[in-house]
Structure formats: C-alpha cells, structure tokens
C-alpha cells in the first residue's frame, strides 16, 4: 500500500512538472478569477462600507472552494484521462484495488494542489490585495483536510459515473458550480450541516472572521465535520464500487 501511495505521489509530481504550461495557466486562472471576485465585491461595496471581515471571508471562501474543486474534479478527470490514454485497464488490474489507487492520487493531488499550491496562493492573493491573513494555519489545514475528505467522496461518485458514461464534463461543471452553494450555506440547521463541505466552510468562516482556533470550536462541530467527511467518503466508495462492478459486467472499462 505504501509503495502504491509513493508511486502515485511521484506520478502526480511528474505530471505537474511535465505539463508545466497547464499547471502555470491553472494558477494564473485561479488568481485572475480571484482578483475579479475581490475587486468586484470591493467596487460594489464602495469605500463607505467596512468590508474587512467580508474581504477576508472572500479570500478564504474562494480558496476553500478551489480546494474542494481540485479534490473532487481530480478523480473524475483522472478517470476520463486514463480511459482516453488507454491506461485505465492497466491500473485497474493492479492487485491493489482501483479505489485505493484513486484515493492515493487524491491525497497526492491534495498535497501538491492544495497544500503546496492553493495555500501559498491564498497568502499571495491576500498580500497582493493589501490584506493580511493572520489566522491560525494549523486550524486552516485541519479544516481543509476535514472538508476535502467529504469532497473526495463526491469525487469517487463522479469517478464511478465517469467509468460508465465516460463523457461527463457537463455534469462535472454542474457539480462544480453546485458545490459553490454548499460552501456558502449558513449552517443553521443540521440538514445544512450534513451537506458535503458545508460544515468545513462554516467553520472556515468562523476562523476567517473571528480567528477561532480548532480547539475553540464546540465538540459537536468537530463531530459533524468528521461524520460528514467520513460519511461522504464511505458513500463515495460504495457508489464507486457499484459503478465499477457494472463497468466490469458490461465490459466497458476501456471504451470511450
């Protein structure tokens, strides 16, 4: 298992390095969208309104959303790419189950895309817009991980759908924009808190606005965060397995 994880980590790094133009343009796009959003809100708010906490919230909220997108899109696009390249079957025939391979890739992408890319990018974005992010980095990482685990569950479901239907880019886009609403929900009711990524985003806002540290959250907040995270991951695994089984029965693993 450990070797399989290292292999996926190395491959993720190699691909980021080799497809450097794609990686750089991805970063540039993220920053451009962020600036559009940030200066848009500032222009609408006008100079008379005190926006300091809102602007910090925008910075954090936007990057949290990016983190989620990276997480669940990575699986689905990964499977589509594997099918197009013709490598899916080879990965599938490993004695280590395919869902674990996907999980290892998602963790690798989390490390490279989120921890090494999105996080520094967030500080860069704050710096270039004259903001200062002074909140606790450990809490930020903790919430990023908690939120990402539930996003991975969504990713597994999308990956399973991709195994059967192959071309699901439109559906991925719908889920991507839909996920924006999950990160915006006020988690007043339990139902809202049970939506994927919702609880993590809510706690993230508390961090951004009040600088709440992870040990200052209520116990129930942590319970919901991890129940939702593990719950969605489990559902993701189960759904993925069902689609995987279906693809193997109809023999459609490598068809595109």
């Amino acid at each position: 298992m450990w070797r399989a994880f290292l292999a996926n980590l190395e491959k993720t790094f190699i691909e980021i390095k080799r497809y450097y133009f794609n990686s750089i343009s991805g970063v540039a796009t993220l920053l451009i969208f962020f600036y559009l959003l940030f200066f848009g809100v500032k222009a609408v708010g006008g100079p008379s309104i005190s926006l300091s906490s809102t602007l910090d919230g925008i910075i954090v909220g936007y990057f949290m959303w990016i983190v989620f997108i990276f997480s669940f899109e990575g699986v689905a696009w990964g499977i589509i790419e594997e099918v197009q390249r013709g490598t899916l079957e080879q990965v599938f025939a490993s004695p280590i189950a395919f869902e674990y391979q996907m999980l290892f890739r998602m963790v690798s992408e989390f490390l490279f895309n989120n921890v090494l890319l999105a996080l520094p990018l967030m500080y860069l974005a704050a710096f270039t817009t004259g903001r200062k992010i002074g909140f606790d980095l450990a809490t930020l990482l903790y919430l990023m991980i908690g939120g990402t685990v539930s996003a991975l569950g969504i990713g597994m479901i999308l990956g399973g759908i991709a195994l059967i239907f192959k071309r699901i880019s439109s559906f991925i886009q719908v889920v991507t924009f839909g996920s924006l609403s999950f990160t915006m929900f006020e988690t007043r009711s339990l139902w809202h808190r049970l939506l994927p990524m919702s609880q993590a985003s809510s706690m993230m806002r508390a961090l951004a606005i009040n600088n709440t540290k992870f040990y200052q959250f209520q116990f129930s907040d942590h319970v919901v965060l991890w129940l939702v995270a593990i719950g969605y991951l489990l559902i993701g695994f189960i759904v993925f397995r069902a689609f995987e089984r279906r693809a193997m029965v109809v023999g459609s693993l490598s068809q595109y």
Binding site: A4, A7, E10, K11, P95, I96, Q101
Partner: peptide, 15 residues
C-alpha cells in the same frame, strides 16, 4: 512519462 518512470510507476502501484 519516460520508460523508466512508467516502469517504476506500474511496479509501484502493484506494491
């Protein structure tokens, strides 16, 4: 990926 990288990757995902 290079030939060597492919070899390392596919051996790796098989543990």
């Amino acid at each position: 990926m290079s030939v060597l990288e492919n070899m390392r990757y596919f051996a790796g995902i098989r543990g």
